[in-house]
Design a protein around this nucleic acid. Structure first.
Lengths: 273, 273
DNA sequence: CCTCTTATGTGCGGTCTCGAACAGAACGCA
DNA sequence: TGCGTTCTGTTCGAGACCGCACATAAGAGG
């Protein structure tokens, strides 16, 4: 475990994402400025009757209309870092079809995922709870669209809009419960079960049985050695639950995978909604 | 690990607490109704210019005065269970010199502490975030005073009082960060380091170097075997950092203990304030 | 087609923790 | 004082995961 996450930006995987047409440009990793969408696509995203993000979709029409002025459509790229621990939060992100991992970084070489945010949530919870700084690293795990908002207009909107407060508070509690469950899970359950759970959670966010990620990335998420992931993945493949090759994973048997995972999967899933 | 926490109520330790004069009566564990203080003591607690609890103390005088009508002084007893996972939250508790452990219960036989609440906090965060049910077990770890409030007046007060919202939101974020840090800590750090951290955290809540708890209780908190705790504790005693005997622990060298613990201690401490 | 990078398979000894069990010591209680 | 409960010390083999290291294979790019 050697701070691989740091190397994800500018990795081969990002290049691959570029080539596959998933994204249309690469952000500048130094300033971590998300790539802005072309005007046409931007207009399309904002024109939709319902936003892709569940939190926004749950708001009264009127409130959402008002927020639009400050919501900026962006394309998030695999490996992009949206926040670093101890830094001020500049934007909150409402993922559409992107999803983002939240990591606790212990000593620069050990990391562990403590939360996963997809269209059901928001990145930048600290702001919603009145805290300026983030204490986690937020890394884009699945590229795609999102709506983002600068910190100060977000604070203003939050102060004004009770519905937004309510939605975000409930979501914050789900996140709290998720983190707690994850703590217990990491303590008691095997690598294989946790891997199965993680793949299922990702599946739910991606809404597809096929996605790309390497054993090394998974090792950082689960807080284990890369070799440990390879072992566990080989087992899951042997029993026909998944298949994979060089950075691509395919879920073959969703139900079987759920049985191979720990009950934490279901528990956390119910919390999130 | 055989659901020892369940046996804490009505344990010998509770009886001991009774005898030592720490408390003046034992609650009924079946209904989990906290023991009410005699009128004299009750009047004393409420008359104080400043409440012992930090969250309440941080409120504007006017808001706190209004809340008083609904705040009920209680004495919490070691081992008392204030909440069970999946149950509706009936009261929120603002500890004075009591402190309370929050546990995730995995399968009835495995438990793990995911939060610790003392005078700096509140038990029943789910309510503050708009969720009716709790997902953790809240167990009194150090007996003492607290102020509690029924769910429905608390909700009303929360809707009315912006200062209360702000305080609780910030505290919720601290709890979130604490749970996340704990998740990583449980994954990477040794039993001995985590034990040291836990003793220090308890010290901060109790405000004393001496408190009572058994290796078995500690095992449930840390999510390890009792024998593992005995080993780690023996090491800490051998190096002169602590001493203990039959349910009583004495911190001899606070600084040394901090060095023996993982950095998570300092990190979480700063989060809490 | 060849080369270079990246991803995965695998083996080794070492360490930590597990589950289970039993012995002894301290304390509560009669 | 003596008995019984509770707490702690300690042992055992088993298993999971560690850090490290190296071999092999797949794919990207020339």
């Amino acid at each position: 475990m050697n701070g691989r996450i740091l190397r994800l930006v500018k990795s081969g995987l990002e290049r691959r994402a570029l080539d596959s047409g998933e994204i249309d440009a690469v952000l500048d990793p130094a300033t971590r400025t998300a790539h802005l969408l072309p005007d046409a696509q931007r207009a399309l995203m904002l024109a939709g009757a319902q936003p892709a993000n569940s939190l926004l979709a749950a708001l009264p029409r009127q409130d959402y209309e008002r927020m639009r002025a400050e919501l900026e459509p962006v394309n998030l790229v695999y490996g992009e870092v949206l926040n670093e621990p101890g830094e001020r939060v500049r934007h909150v992100y409402f993922p559409g079809d992107a999803h983002v991992s939240l990591l606790v970084v212990l000593d620069g070489s050990n990391a562990l995922e403590v939360g996963l945010v997809g269209r059901e949530g928001m990145v930048g919870m600290s702001l919603a709870l009145g805290v300026e700084d983030s204490e986690v690293r937020a890394v884009v795990q699945g590229g795609g669209t999102a709506l983002r908002m600068k910190a100060s207009p977000f604070r203003e909107e939050l102060a004004r809009c009770v519905a937004l407060q309510r939605e975000l508070n409930r979501y914050a509690y789900a996140k709290l419960a998720q983190a707690r469950q994850t703590a217990a899970c990491n303590r008691f359950h095997s690598v294989e079960a946790r891997l199965a759970r993680w793949l299922l959670m990702t599946r739910d966010r991606v809404r597809a049985d096929y996605f790309h990620l390497t054993h090394e990335f998974l090792a950082d998420m689960l807080g284990v050695r890369r070799a440990g992931v390879s072992n566990a993945a080989a087992n899951l493949q042997r029993t026909g639950l998944i298949s994979y090759r060089r950075g691509h994973i395919n879920i073959l048997d969703r139900k079987g995978l759920a049985e191979a995972s720990c009950p934490c999967y279901e528990i956390v899933r119910k919390l999130a909604r």
